[in-house]
């Protein structure tokens, strides 16, 4: 009967002011994105580089304030409660794995310290022996073996993929309820990547952790995610059951994205994809669909207003006029 989302965001919007003093402009990084995360389920977010995925993650982790929108953690409206204690308890339950392992680890601390700190702060373990055992187990879980050797290393002594695994171990340390993983495996080879994804799948099944999994590796989302959300230029344009969405993408952007996935099973070269038009500007005004300029099926009304979400059978929905009213 786990039908209540543990973390829910409604109409999250984030606008940034960017550029120099002479060329100030508003970047509409995220526009009206809604997400529900359920215990024991994985929702993957895929989409364009620069489409707002990390910004959504940072809002959900409460590292930045949304411009507008609402967030509920266990039905509790979290944006209304700004107390320090509430924030600390929120962070203990909602962990983030940052996209960039080169800047997210403090260079002056050894790996062991990086993992011990959250254990102490959130009172997961207190005795020295207990803490050491837990650090050891965490390193082992992310294949940093022999664990004792890695515990005494500094981040600069690790390769890119090894740092990424330390960041994953740190998120796991506090036994959170929700993990927001922003490209957690982007620097890992297939083999270690599968190990990490299997570990996350195990935590999802055994500890009922809810995952938000941001990735450019769409094939891994197929294996790991229950639901998929596709973002383009600040908007969530399509969502639904992963397998159904991948086998039958509806939004023209999703179709383009899936056609570009390299697939060794198909031969040496990916199919030629015709990509016309520029990457959208998030600073340009205009209320239409951001994909209109590149879309092969564009209609006049596409340039006027963003289409509403059309709900389809099989937990699918899409924001595109081609399906509006069907």
């Amino acid at each position: 009967m786990q039908t209540e989302p543990i973390l829910e965001a409604r109409d999250l919007t984030k606008h940034f002011v960017a550029g120099g003093a002479m060329s100030r402009q508003t970047v509409k990084a995220v526009q009206n994105v809604s997400i529900k995360l359920f215990p024991g389920k994985v929702t993957a977010v895929v989409g364009e580089s620069g489409s707002g995925k990390s910004t959504v993650v940072r809002m959900l982790a409460r590292l930045i304030e949304p411009t507008s929108g609402q967030m509920f953690f266990k039905q509790h409206n979290v944006l209304e409660d700004k107390g320090r204690r509430t924030l600390l308890s929120y962070r203990g339950q909602v962990q983030i794995i940052f996209q960039d392992p080169f800047s997210s680890l403090n260079p002056v601390h050894r790996v062991g310290y990086v993992l011990q700190r959250p254990l102490r702060i959130h009172h997961i373990a207190n005795q020295k022996r207990q803490i050491q055992q837990r650090v050891h187990d965490l390193l082992q879980q992310v294949s940093l073996i022999p664990a004792a050797d890695y515990a005494v290393k500094y981040p600069h002594q690790l390769s890119g993929g090894q740092r990424q695994r330390v960041a994953i171990a740190r998120a796991l340390a506090v036994e959170p309820k929700v993990i927001l993983a922003d490209e957690p495996v982007s620097m890992l080879d297939v083999s270690i990547r599968l190990g990490i994804l299997n570990l996350m799948a195990k935590l999802r099944d055994e500890q009922r952790i809810a995952f938000l999994y941001v990735t450019h590796d769409i094939a891994s989302a197929r294996y790991f995610a229950d639901e998929l959300l596709v973002m383009y230029a600040g908007h969530a344009v399509e969502g639904g059951d992963t397998e159904s969405l991948l086998q039958d993408p509806l939004h023209p952007y999703t179709q383009l994205l899936i056609s570009a996935v390299p697939d060794p099973a198909r031969g040496l070269r990916t199919a030629e994809i015709k990509i016309k038009g520029e990457i959208p500007s998030l600073t340009a005004v205009g209320d239409g669909c951001p994909f209109a300029d590149r879309c092969p099926h564009v209609l006049p009304k596409c340039r006027e207003a963003m289409p509403p979400a059309t709900v389809l059978p099989g937990k699918r929905w899409v924001r595109c006029y081609l399906f509006d009213g069907k």
Binding site: G47, E48, H216, L256, A260, V261, I273, I275
Partner: peptide, 9 residues
């Protein structure tokens, strides 16, 4: 590593 497959291509 941080690029979607369309931009990568």
């Amino acid at each position: 590593t941080a690029l979607d497959v369309v931009v990568q291509k």
